[in-house]
Write a protein that binds this DNA or RNA. Structure first.
Lengths: 344, 344
DNA sequence: CTGAAAGCGCTAACAC
DNA sequence: GTGTTAGCGCTTTCAG
């Protein structure tokens, strides 16, 4: 049950254990003959390097902590998938943690990760307060934020241009003839979402549209809560809008489900535009039009920056805001005139 | 940048560092006064326990390795989510790895996890050969398999009754009047899948049905490969079946997409039954009928067994085969007589 | 090219 | 109650 150590094999090979260490590490200060002999014995005895012990002396663990607000959410798990890929390519393993959107748990897992001597941390912040709450820790270990929430903070982050994404979506909806567009899922406490709301308001202002909101009182987003919110929304007829801009694809999916149940046809009766472009959006019969967050690029750049910092890169933090992209599928169509006029 | 150690705070507190260790560990052999004093200093100086160092002496890491065949697959990520939840509840962190369905990579990550001194490993095997390939390692670290593939092997595993699941699905389809049922996605090399095929064949035999197959030549399953396979299948008309039993929900989703494109209506023209009950299956407009694998229960029992072994539990390995469940949604309906008779 | 020895930060057994 | 000390398995000088 217990592992074979350097000493064990040194004994068998009749060399000192520093020699064994050299054989293993590919050092040049050793003859090819002894190296082969030692390596063979290692194989025979089933030796595996004890990374815990190595970490003690090298002071590095080749481990990156990934803190998500939730693991059980398509956007997060897609992001996690990309982060895992890129970190692995760079020679790191991931320890996966969740903050459950709670500042306190976030702080706790951050400390845990520090205790485990993670070489660096990638974090999707739990809320607006995350930076302040973690500030002292962030100074001790390279950290990069994903997904905004860090305006004016001296940390590296990569996010998508949320303002621009919403404006893009609004322009599209407006070009389709919609003038009564409801913003679905406004969520106080999240910087990401306040930026999106700003974009919405700006578009409304520019085009002389009335702003309409359906607020999300939870501090997370899911199909289920989108569904429940939508049920409430649909209980008042006639509907005073021809299109819904959902603040996340999961919410959009919930809306579609509620609409199905309530006999509202998408897109014939109302158009729905999402945000995120999770893989669900591309499913047959769903075909959700949406604003894409470039998840792979976000993961790639975040990992690149983090690894750079770990390896000693100095200088200004990377503060990268990536452009979003409009993905046209089938959930948005030209506004139906009669519905629109219903409430004018 | 470097961390505060026990010694550092011992110096400040003017005590020996074993006293500090005692204060931290909640030992009783210390006066309340010094404990408080020490704890305060720890807080002020921002001390975090070095788990790497602790692991060196305790020989335990509170880490569990999770090896999946792929992270980018709904079934796997749902499973991962549950495993993460249950391990966290038991006080362990997860290191997430992928075998990419390759025996060689599987062996590699298994060894890596051993090197990191994971206290235990939960693995979804890459293929039939996994057990044999890992046998020597498995003796060194507590391991539990998820998702079959381990018949007659002296390892703990928890899986679903695949044979029973298929029989259940077939009975349902047959009760709906289908007699021409194609099994979609047969995949050689996977034990799970050969058990399912056995179930299919048994049902066909019992009811005097002709077996029809569409083989999956890849060693993985995805929406995309389901789609491509289905496109081939649909290129020969008329369709010699009224229902398709897909070996996975992802494949079923691909079939639906292809059907959509080719003007085949689901369920009016053909019924589709999936396997797994991934969360996608429950989406509005998709409403895929399927056989559920009890993922949460599988995760829970696997974690329970693993933690038991880690804590020294002896005795026979747990070999648990959970019952599947038929989930009726909207993708299967009564067979249309004319279509069925077309090829009789 | 190889061996001896120090020490990473901590826990735990042993003294006092 | 508190201090001293011996490792845990490894890497890395420093000698030879």
């Amino acid at each position: 049950m217990s592992y074979v150590t350097l000493k064990d094999i040194a004994k068998v090979a009749k060399v000192s254990y520093s020699t064994v260490s050299r054989a293993l590490s590919g050092s040049k200060e050793i003859s090819e003959a002894t190296r082969q002999r030692v390596l063979n014995i290692c194989r025979e005895m089933g030796y595996t390097t004890d990374f815990v012990a190595r970490s003690m002396v090298t002071g590095t663990t080749n481990t990156i902590g990934l803190i998500l607000t939730s693991v059980n959410n398509p956007f997060m798990s897609e992001l996690a998938n990309y982060v895992e890929q890129y970190t692995r390519a760079a020679g790191y393993n991931i320890i996966l943690c969740s903050s459950a959107h709670e500042l306190e748990q976030e702080q706790q897992v951050f400390q845990l990760l520090m205790g485990r001597r993670a070489d660096g941390i990638i974090i999707v912040p739990a809320s607006q307060g995350s930076y302040a709450s973690l500030e002292t820790f962030i100074k001790k270990v390279p950290t990069v934020f994903i997904s905004g929430n860090s305006r004016d903070m001296p940390v590296s982050y990569v996010s998508v241009d949320n303002h621009q994404g919403i404006v893009m979506g609004m322009e599209y909806l407006i070009s389709l003839g919609h003038r009564d567009i409801l913003y679905f899922g406004r969520r106080p406490g999240s910087l990401t979402h306040s930026v999106r709301v700003e974009g919405y308001l700006a578009s409304c202002g520019k085009h002389g549209l009335n702003a309409q909101f359906k607020d999300n009182t939870n501090n997370f987003t899911s199909i289920h809560n989108g569904y429940e919110l939508a049920k409430e929304l649909f209980s008042h007829r006639p509907l005073p809008f021809t299109a819904i801009f959902a603040s996340s694809d999961t919410n959009a999916l919930g809306i579609i489900k509620a609409a199905d149940e309530d006999g509202i046809r998408v897109p014939e009766d109302i158009s729905i535009l999402g945000f995120d472009n999770i893989s669900y959006a591309d499913l047959p019969k769903i075909e959700l039009s949406t604003i894409e967050q470039p998840k792979e690029m976000m993961a790639a750049r975040a990992v690149e920056e983090l690894v750079g910092r770990i390896r000693g890169k100095k200088g200004e933090p990377l503060q990268l805001i990536l452009p979003p992209k409009l993905i046209k599928r089938k959930s948005c169509v030209k506004a139906v005139q009669e519905t629109a006029s219903l409430q004018s």
